[in-house]
Amino acid sequence: MNIKFYENNEKRMLGITLKDAERHENNNMALHVCQNRANILENRDILAQVLETDVKRFVCANQTHSAHFVHITQAEIGHGAFDAASAIPDTDALYTYEPNVVISSFTADCVPVLFYNEKTNLIGAIHSGWQGTIKEITFKLMQHLQANEDCDLQDVQVIIGPAISQEKFEVDSDVYEKFKALGYADAFMYFNEATNKYHIDNQLTVKTQCELAGIPSSNITIDPMCTFKSEDGFSHRQDRATGRHLSFIVRKED
């Protein structure tokens, strides 16, 4: 299975599944956009084997491009693992302190964010498409963690995963105006006179949201892979029927 690991050690595993021609539906991991549910469950089962766990330890959300986040407890483990109907509803970010749980996020051009605080056992995943970014889901979740979960953001490590690049993320003035209204994204946008389109770097905007919340720049890593241009990438902009990557993070505990 084609998987990119950002960490794989005795403490945690985090990474992202990539396109794989040898797997069903090119290694699509999403039940809400698939040709056959059994294909996705088989793909997830193989991923679980690689992660040395079971699919019943996965937690998946019904992502709606919201700014909603949910604290996952023992009661929610397994939600969305085998069917979309049981996924955590209307949610685009999940976090937990539970060990040996696969916290997930599905993307195909949108920005996946994985994060952890080793001192408090916190782990989490965020789905930030452009709509989630202008709603500041990442910034709001980090503020919440600081205010309500006694999380020192100086201790948080962030990995911003593969997404559509600024070159390929072209938008009209309506989306440009929404990013401009944030007040800090101007440096991540340019106008192409030849096409009359604006180009936006969603990854750098999300990185700035992390920094504004209080996470040190040195704690943030960006994966430069463009999901539109890379053969390993699922791109909704390129193919509306495409599958989804699954970004994952697991904290290990015996």
Rank of each mutant, 00 (worst) to 15 (best):
K4T: 11
K11E: 13
M13G: 00
L14M: 15
G15T: 03
K19L: 12
K19G: 10
A21K: 15
H24A: 12
H24V: 06
N26V: 04
M29C: 03
L31A: 10
C34P: 06
A38P: 02
A38S: 14
N39I: 05
E42C: 05
N43Q: 06
R44W: 03
R44F: 02
D45K: 12
D45P: 04
D54Y: 03
V55R: 09
R57Y: 05
C60L: 13
A61H: 01
Q63H: 11
Q63G: 02
T64R: 15
H68R: 13
V70A: 14
H71L: 07
H71A: 11
T73A: 07
Q74C: 09
A75C: 09
I77Y: 00
I77V: 15
G78S: 02
A81H: 02
F82M: 03
D83S: 10
A85W: 04
D90T: 13
D90H: 08
T91W: 05
L94D: 08
P99C: 12
N100P: 03
V102H: 00
S104I: 00
S104F: 00
S105P: 03
F106A: 13
P112H: 05
V113C: 04
V113M: 04
Y116H: 12
N117D: 15
E118G: 01
E118D: 15
K119I: 12
N121H: 15
N121K: 07
L122A: 05
I123K: 01
W130K: 10
Q131I: 15
G132D: 08
G132N: 13
T133S: 13
E136W: 01
I137H: 00
I137G: 03
K140W: 03
Q143N: 11
H144A: 07
H144I: 03
L145Y: 02
A147T: 14
N148T: 04
C151W: 00
L153T: 08
L153Q: 13
D155C: 09
D155T: 12
Q157P: 00
I159G: 06
I160K: 00
I160Y: 04
G161N: 03
P162C: 10
P162E: 02
A163M: 05
I164E: 12
I164V: 12
E167R: 08
K168Y: 14
F169R: 06
F169P: 05
E170G: 08
E170K: 13
D172L: 11
S173A: 14
D174P: 01
Y176Q: 12
A181T: 05
A181W: 09
L182P: 13
G183V: 02
D186Q: 09
D186N: 13
A187Q: 07
F191H: 15
N192Q: 13
T195Y: 04
H199Y: 11
N202A: 11
Q203N: 09
L204F: 15
L204A: 14
L204H: 07
K207T: 10
T208A: 14
T208L: 10
Q209G: 10
G214W: 13
G214C: 14
I215S: 07
S217L: 07
I220L: 07
I222V: 15
T227I: 11
T227E: 11
G233Y: 02
G233D: 10
H236N: 12
H236I: 15
Q238Y: 10
D239W: 09
R240G: 05
A241K: 08
H245Y: 08
F248I: 00
F248Y: 08
I249P: 00
R251V: 06
